[in-house]
């Protein structure tokens, strides 16, 4: 299927994750897609990683056998390679916990899903599905109530605070069920993070996120970001937990229709528990994003009949 070129200037100018650094170094070059364009991500001598667009490969001249194919802007952060098809900002958001030395951090996998980036982000922000989709892990019937929480926009980010949920196994390090406190943070339109009570130290938070790469309008790749307080579990056990959660979400996500995220507030019927996603959809609308979404009419143009 030929994808039409992405003309959305807002999304072209964003930084997007395209690969985990160890995947490129150990098993590169990696071919992937970003906004419908096929990219090659490969390491160069000296530890640099370059990203090129397949459509322009071979069109550049070469001097002494060295290709002059233009490379895309690249940066490495949080263990991932980021690039942009437009003019990206000077820097990417920060996660201060990533600098703390006592945290577990490993490449936990980049999982592809047949839906839009927006749908994948929204699923990550949703508490209400835990007891139904992740029963026995992140939730358990009959503990299905989502207590009220607050959502606010500050400094260009969305924060949802005061979220609480009963979880039988909140993380691999859990030994018993607990009421987990959550905060959600959207630091980038496709990078949701959550801060949740650590089963080991209730004063500190595990930070978990997905950095979602919009491959096409209806396909995405969720790069897993884990920054945990975990002293005893081995890498394979932690990654298995993540794979289980992802595997449970995947069929649910892929059955959502339409695959592009509707931004028009009445396209789907939200409930009180969906406050974060309502704010998220509005944010995408206000940013002017048109790729991978169904914009519909402006939220202000809706009149109550």
């Amino acid at each position: 299927m030929v994808e039409k070129r992405c003309e959305d200037p807002v999304i072209r100018d964003l930084w997007h994750p395209v690969a985990a650094v160890p995947d490129v170094v150990d098993r590169g070059p990696i071919r992937t897609q970003l906004l419908g364009e096929t990219l090659t991500v490969q390491s160069k001598e000296g530890g640099d990683i370059c990203v090129t667009e397949e459509a322009v490969q071979g069109t550049g001249a070469s001097v002494d056998g060295v290709s002059l194919t233009p490379t895309l802007p690249t940066l490495q952060k949080f263990g991932f390679v980021w690039t942009s098809l437009g003019s990206p900002p000077d820097s990417l958001f920060d996660i201060p916990e990533f600098q703390e030395s006592d945290r577990w951090y490993e490449n936990s996998g980049s999982f592809r899903v047949h839906t839009s980036a927006g749908r994948a982000v929204e699923n990550f922000l949703d508490l209400a599905h835990f007891p139904f989709v992740h029963e026995g892990y992140l939730g358990e019937r009959p503990y299905t109530e989502v207590k009220d929480y607050s959502v606010a926009t500050k400094e260009g980010e969305i924060w949802a605070n005061g979220c609480e949920f009963y979880q039988p196994i909140a993380a691999v390090s859990a030994t018993e069920g607990q009421v987990t406190q959550y905060s959600y943070r959207l630091a980038h339109p496709f990078c949701p993070l959550l801060y949740k009570t650590s089963p080991l130290n209730r004063e500190r938070f595990d930070v978990i996120g997905i950095f979602v790469q919009p491959m096409t309008e209806e396909r995405a790749c969720a790069h897993q970001f884990l920054c945990l307080l975990d002293e005893s579990n081995d890498d394979a056990t932690i990654k298995r937990f993540q794979a289980v959660i992802f595997g449970q979400d995947k069929p649910i996500l892929e059955n959502q229709v339409p695959k592009r995220l509707p931004l028009e507030p009445r396209a789907e019927t939200p409930i009180r528990a969906d406050k974060t996603s309502i704010q998220y959809r509005r944010w995408l609308y206000d940013l002017g994003i048109s790729y991978g979404v169904v914009r519909g009419s402006s939220p202000e143009q809706i009149s109550v009949t």
Binding site: A236, K239, R240
Partner: peptide
């Protein structure tokens, strides 16, 4: 015994 099949290729 969980093997880190993906992404670790254990």
């Amino acid at each position: 015994h969980s093997i880190d099949f993906f992404p670790g290729w254990e």
